[in-house]
Amino acid sequence: MTEPEPRATRADAARNREQLLEVATRVLASPGEETSMRAIAREAGVGIATLYRHFPTRESLVEAVYRDQVVRLTNGARDLLAEAAPAVALRRWMDLFGDWIATKNGMLDTLLTMIESDVVGHARTRDELLNAVSSILDAGRAAGDLRPDVTAEEVAASLIGIFTVAHQPGHAVTADRLLDILLDGLRPQGHP
């Protein structure tokens, strides 16, 4: 009879961790000041001790959110290619990338410190993201619906530029419009 209890505890712990990550991702994406760990725990519906059991420091929480988002982006490329044509998959992946950029808003100071101290491997993340974009571009080239002369680095630089400009206060341009224009430019000439 004592056997099911540890499984239930592990299931509860996994649910709590996922809930904390979900809330932290949403809260950290919000503009404004960095949110306290206590506020994240409260919004996730868990006690502060539960939060610290999973994430002993703010840095460990930020790293977990960051890594979770990178995994979602890299897996997202594969999943989107499985369900849509490459050009459509690329456009949907651009939206995922925008969500990832937005997530970094409320954790930017912590994240930059972690990158500088090499706690978060910026080069590794960059390679993972470029590989995700390359997989979509390669599929698009093979299908003939994406230009063969565009690199993953060029797409990534374009995305960073778009999200930097589109999220500035007072700019009338929207990220969606700019992403649609970028995708049109990535299609071969004469492609519908």
Score class of each variant (00 low, 15 high):
L108I: 12
A152C: 01
G161A: 09
L108W: 15
D79E: 15
V155F: 00
R124F: 12
A143G: 02
I48E: 14
L80A: 11
A82Y: 05
G76M: 03
L90F: 04
S135R: 13
V46S: 08
V88L: 10
G98R: 05
R92Q: 14
L108S: 14
A44L: 08
S36A: 11
V70N: 12
I162H: 05
R38N: 08
M94K: 02
L80S: 08
L137I: 03
T110M: 07
F55D: 04
T164Q: 10
L137S: 03
L111H: 10
T50R: 01
D109R: 14
F97W: 11
S135Q: 15
S36F: 07
L137H: 03
K104N: 12
L90A: 02
S30A: 13
E59G: 07
G140M: 00
V133P: 08
S134C: 05
M37F: 02
S60D: 10
A77D: 00
R78S: 12
M114D: 02
L80W: 06
T151S: 15
D127S: 13
V155K: 00
V119T: 14
G47R: 05
L28T: 05
G45D: 03
L28R: 05
L96P: 08
E154S: 09
A84T: 13
A102T: 14
R126N: 15
L81P: 02
A44Y: 07
P31F: 05
A85V: 05
E59Y: 06
V88A: 11
E83F: 01
K104A: 15
A142C: 06
T57C: 06
V62N: 02
H122N: 11
L51N: 00
F97R: 11
T103G: 15
N131H: 14
R92D: 14
D138V: 12
A49P: 01
M114C: 04
S60M: 08
R92P: 02
E128H: 14
D109T: 15
A64S: 10
G140K: 00
D68L: 10
H122Q: 10
L51K: 01
L130E: 10
P56H: 03
A39M: 09
M94D: 08
E59A: 14
A152I: 00
M114Y: 06
M114S: 03
T35I: 09
L80P: 07
R147H: 09
I101S: 14
L159Q: 04
Y66H: 15
G121H: 11
L73A: 02
G47T: 06
L108C: 09
A142N: 07
R67N: 12
